[in-house]
Design a protein around this nucleic acid. Structure first.
Ligand SMILES: [Zn+2]
Ligand SMILES: [Zn+2]
Ligand SMILES: [Zn+2]
Ligand SMILES: [Zn+2]
Lengths: 142, 142
DNA sequence: GCTTGGCATGTTATCTTATAACGTATATCG
DNA sequence: CGATATACGTTATAAGATAACATGCCAAGC
């Protein structure tokens, strides 16, 4: 995470205490956190306690590729590959809510073809798979 | 839509007036409608006017493959291919909110591979592309 | 034909998620 | 130092979703 931060600094981004704290909070979890859950922890840490505080920091992190929004959950995760500009794909466990991030880039062939045929210009793609993580799949069998 | 309805009947599903009305409302639009927008139209048509009325009908339609939820928009569209069990992919115009549905099935190769490697069992996949439809892309140039 | 059980509908109340609007503080630059 | 831009903080409210409970409907079983 330190490296991501360093790169952000180089790009002239202002990595303020709230923003750093939110990224730390996200990075400590392997699951997606809702904005209000993050807000609770900000409050505990002495930051502002109203929704815009959390949402603004999250907007910053998402805009700059340091975090992603999980549409399926209305929640957020730290980016697992903050280096490059990538198209993320997520695997969300419906039991324990853990979220794993993969790169989806090679995935887009078929959809791209349809879009091109339809004259649709894709700017952003959301790929979110829901299912069972290995641990919870084991639990199910037991 | 009549055909979809007939098939639903055959499966022993109860196609009640509210449910039919909601499907009609969705089918009349090529964009996604929020639950409260649907609720407004139900009210106008003399149905119940409280949120659960809309949400329950939508749950029914989504569960039975007659409509889809667009996670990106927290909204709903009628299914364009109600025949088969398909994995839908959506192209959402960020300007006019129109939603086009494509079949995503051949798309999943890469993600499937990653999931298998990780031991993750995929049960459902959300694919939503955001961008510009042909009409709005033209408008941008002008 | 009446009863009973399951399902759908309807309502009230409440919860969660998100943003608008405004004032204050802090940083950056001439 | 003063001007300007960006970030932070608060209040208030919008938008999306569900819990809990009462009522109505219909079809199966007596
Ligand atoms: Zn990422
Ligand atoms: Zn799990
Ligand atoms: Zn469909
Ligand atoms: Zn458009």
């Amino acid at each position: 995470m330190a490296s991501a931060e360093a790169r952000a600094d180089e790009k002239g981004l202002r990595f303020t205490p709230v923003r750093r704290k939110v990224l730390e909070i996200l990075a400590q979890e392997h699951r997606a956190l809702g904005a209000y859950e993050i807000l609770d922890r900000l409050r505990e840490a002495g930051f502002g306690s109203q929704p815009p505080v959390a949402y603004r920091a999250l907007d910053f992190l998402v805009s700059n590729g340091l975090a992603h929004r999980i549409e399926r959950l209305n929640a957020f995760v730290a980016c697992a590959h903050p280096d490059d500009g990538h198209v993320p794909a997520f695997m969300i466990c419906r039991v324990c809510d853990t979220v794993a991030e993969a790169r989806a880039t090679p995935d887009r062939g078929a959809l791209d073809a349809v879009a091109e045929a339809a004259g649709f210009t894709i700017e952003r793609t959301v790929v979110e798979a829901e299912g069972l993580c290995p641990i919870c799949a084991d639990g199910d069998k037991a």
